[in-house]
Structures are given as structure tokens and as C-alpha cells.
């Protein structure tokens, strides 16, 4: 078994075996392969980068090259048990609409994202006066795919405004899980499980 990225491991641990899963922004299909091989899931993927798609398809995974902003509408309502959006939300044109699509297509939806209110990010902007470049956000402001930076508190307020049910939340600092207390300051990364 290959080692998954920590946020993907949390998602994999919390998916019921045998589920139908759509991984939106699936990269090279690491989560899909783990779900297929370890949990007997029927996993499908959507990925924007052709090299990643080619790698995933060559591994026997069902991945479609496409853009979450435009290609989700073709999937029928409730056609998957879970829809997953890992490290992808902040790269989309309209994150609110993506979350809406996520929970239309999936009975439940996982969303994971880097927290822009982590203390190191805050410090970098406060002291350095420059857009933060961190381990999880390694690109510079002009070449980053992350066009909608989001904090844990921002996301929680979106969940409230859209009246979504929150069914799970996990926080990561470094590569280990951390508590909920002061998560918006202390967590580098968050994973939410939602229901529409």
C-alpha cells in the first residue's frame, strides 16, 4: 500500500467500503487507487492536467480530463455516494458553485484545503509584507493556481450561509492531526465532510 497525502488518508479512512466515489481534481489518481484497491470502491475522477490524466488512465483508473468549473454539470444528481474535492477548491473560479455541485452529485462531499489563516501565513504577510509562500502554498502570487485563498473560518461561514450539514471536520498541522481549538490559527490544512 502506498502512502497517501495526509488529507487524502483522512478522506480514505472515512469512506464506507464499496462506495461510489467521484474525485474532483484527482491528480494522478492516488486516492482513487487506494479506494479501489483497499476498500473495493467504484472510483471515478476528474482532472484538469493531461499528464496526470494519462498517468491515471494508464493505471487502469477511470479519469476524465476536464475542468471542475465547467464539466460537473453533466453528472446526474446523487449519482455518487461521495464526491471529493481535495486541494482543488481554492483553484476554482467559483468555489461556492463548486461546493453546490459537489453536494448535488454526491450524497456527501469531502472538501480539503490549505488554511490561509494559519499563523505562518499571517506572520509572513504581517512581517514580510509579501504574499505568503509556504510548504502547502509554494507558488508565488503571479503563477499560483490558487486564485481563491480561503481560511477555515471563511469556509465555516460558507457552510452556514448555504445551510449545509457538517458531518465531520479534521485539521492537520505538519502532517499530523491537530485539535479543533484555534484551528483557524493553528491548522495548516482542513478536511470537511458535508451533506447538502
Amino acid at each position: 500500500m502506498t502512502l497517501l497525502r495526509p488529507d487524502l488518508q483522512i478522506i480514505a479512512d472515512n469512506i464506507t467500503p464499496g462506495s461510489r466515489v467521484l474525485d474532483i481534481g484527482c491528480g494522478d489518481g492516488a486516492l482513487m487507487a487506494a479506494l479501489r484497491d483497499d476498500k473495493g470502491c467504484d472510483a471515478r475522477g476528474l482532472e484538469i492536467d493531461p499528464a496526470n490524466v494519462a498517468a491515471a488512465v494508464a493505471k487502469g483508473l477511470s479519469v476524465v480530463q476536464g475542468d471542475a468549473d465547467t464539466d460537473l454539470t453533466a453528472y446526474p444528481d446523487g449519482s455518487f455516494d461521495y464526491a471529493v474535492l481535495s486541494q482543488t477548491l481554492q483553484t476554482t473560479m467559483r468555489p461556492d458553485m463548486i461546493v453546490e455541485q459537489l453536494l448535488r452529485i454526491g450524497q456527501q462531499g469531502f472538501v480539503s484545503f490549505p488554511n490561509f489563516a494559519h499563523w505562518r501565513v499571517r506572520l509572513s504577510l504581517l512581517i514580510g509584507g509579501r504574499m505568503p509562500v509556504t510548504r502547502l502554498l509554494p507558488e508565488r502570487w503571479y503563477d499560483t493556481p490558487n486564485i481563491h485563498h480561503v481560511t477555515i473560518d471563511d469556509f465555516r461561514s460558507l457552510v452556514r450561509e448555504e445551510q449545509l450539514q457538517q458531518e465531520g471536520q479534521w485539521f492537520l498541522s505538519g502532517d499530523t492531526q491537530t485539535g479543533r481549538g484555534l484551528a483557524n490559527l493553528m491548522a495548516e490544512h482542513a478536511v470537511f465532510l458535508l451533506r447538502g
Partner: peptide, 16 residues
């Protein structure tokens, strides 16, 4: 591909 997704078929697609 959109039609296959709508039909729930197992589809892969890439533009090379």
C-alpha cells in the same frame, strides 16, 4: 464524455 458521465458509464478521457 459528458453523455457517458450522464449515463453513469465508466469513462476516461484525455486530450493529447
Amino acid at each position: 464524455v459528458h453523455a457517458l458521465n450522464a449515463a453513469g458509464a465508466e469513462a476516461s478521457f484525455v486530450e493529447l
